[in-house]
Design a protein around this nucleic acid. Sequence first.
RNA 1: AGGGGCGUCGCCAAGCGGUAAGGCACCGGAUUUUGAUUCCGGCAUUCCCAGGUUCGAUCCCUGGCGCCCCUGCCA
Length: 561
Amino acid sequence: MTIPAPSAGTNFIRTLIDQDLASGKHQAIITRFPPEPNGYLHIGHAKSLCLNFGLALHYGGCCHLRFDDTNPVKEEQEYIDAIKADVRWLGFDWGTHEYYASDYFEKLYGFAERLIEKGLAYVCDLSADQIREYRGTLTEPGRESPYRNRTVAENLDLLRRMRAGEFADGSRVLRARIDMTSPNLNLRDPVLYRILHATHHRTGDAWCLYPMYDFAHGQSDSIEGITHSICTLEFEAHRPLYDWLCDALAIYHPQQIEFARLNLTYTVMSKRRLLELVNEGRVAGWDDPRMPTLSGMRRRGYPAAAIRTFCDRIGVGKSDSVIDMSVLEDCVREELDRTAPRAMGVLRPLKVVITNYPAGEAEQLTVPNHPKEPAFGTRMLPFGSELYIERDDFMENPPGKYFRLAPGREVRLRYAYIIRCDEVIKDPASGEIKELRCSYDPATGGGETPDGRKVKGIIHWVAAANAVPAEIRLYDRLFSVANPTADKASDYRGTLNPESLEILGEALLEPTLAAAAPGSCFQFERLGYFCVDAGTAPGRPRFNRTVTLRDSWAKMVGAES
RNA sequence: AGGGGCGUCGCCAAGCGGUAAGGCACCGGAUUUUGAUUCCGGCAUUCCCAGGUUCGAUCCCUGGCGCCCCUGCCA
């Protein structure tokens, strides 16, 4: 596994840590990545991963992987396994530092009793609806619960009986005793524990009492000695509670720091919505190549290194932002240009017969696997009298500046000869072009043009004789609008792009591609980067298009229409 | 409306009182057996607005305006 290089750029969090190190507040830093195992990781998590692990790498500190598993009704082992696989794939190593909030349940419960003993928490019998009523609103203060002044002894007794399973779900909760008039609603006696008779994926039925996020997260940070607890902006209003709890319990007090979560154009980034897309069958699963999940991107062919570069490039700040998808695609192209061997494949084949090439004969061309990197070596490419070219590379009535094949025109077959189109054969009934009759110039092999004539167009091709039939999946943006959730009046699903997946069943590839291993990535010359799908069947490969090449011709044509 | 944040180029983002980095996108041009890559050049007299302090302000002060988050026994 390649070791990710720590980011070169700086940000407000690094500035803050530099100060903490300089002032002697800390000698070393410990961060953590705290996913809840209730879904798969997405590119937004990658930002957090790169930040937290990157900081540890940069400062020679340590980053813990901690599962925030305090809600048994939503969490599953499947997600834990998937999350660990994704973190590893991204290139990060948590060593022995794999933790679970559920490992701290006993300790957390002890904290609860400590709070009660200090008169800082109480058992409340109000229903969920009543608690909401008592909480007040953004502008009006809340009212104190009638159970707020129970004695320490009574609270302790009740909490113990809650733990013992004497009460039904929802009948009682443990609350912090803070201030019902606080302008920060999180401080209006927040719920710390709720009763949940549910089987936990790790602790089984040992508990029927589960801590809320606010009473688990900061405490777990404290237990692990986290120095900088980095979370997203929406937890900003929780920070006063985070601080209050650490102080009330008189435990080690980590510093919570918030940053802006990642948003990407043409996709959604909430686990709830991604789960909906999966459950409603709008995509083929969490790892559908159109999904912004790490597993989806991996299947799509995005290299982990490209995702790390992306996270570096976008920076870390506190202002809400939406990153253009082109930034990610640029990172993917940059990485793949360096690392992907070249190959030839025809997506939508058009038959070409070379009339002056001896029928039945063939030759083997030796061609490079990378235009700039000799270390990639060479491979053999068969050439014969029957070939296939891309339908797009021929036009009967080409517009100006089109320099591919057209009747009477010449074009070079990449790494082979120059051919001229002599005849167009059509289906008499439909008028569809069935085949091209061309002649080749034997003197122009290997890139030679002895007479110095100019042939601007170079196209890719595949020899018919040994062509490998393949299925190619073309992906486009999942949504057809840049910000699917911007319009709060309508459902984001209405903006799903109906053309986000196009399946091409008749593609033809050069022979070497038949044996390509699942997951391996190639550049199909002039088309884009493609990777062998994880679910590919032997004998008939299935490729996913990772990303197209930049295409200034398409841009020019698109601009005119 | 109460509280907490944020506002520098189309999208991100440096900048921390001394006269606006960088990336993506976009537009030119060179090289090229991928209309790819690479390369070279262009792209904010201006930092949400208005006042003020200062020799000097994107950076400090005051007042506006705009956007985001908070009323789960989710995280």
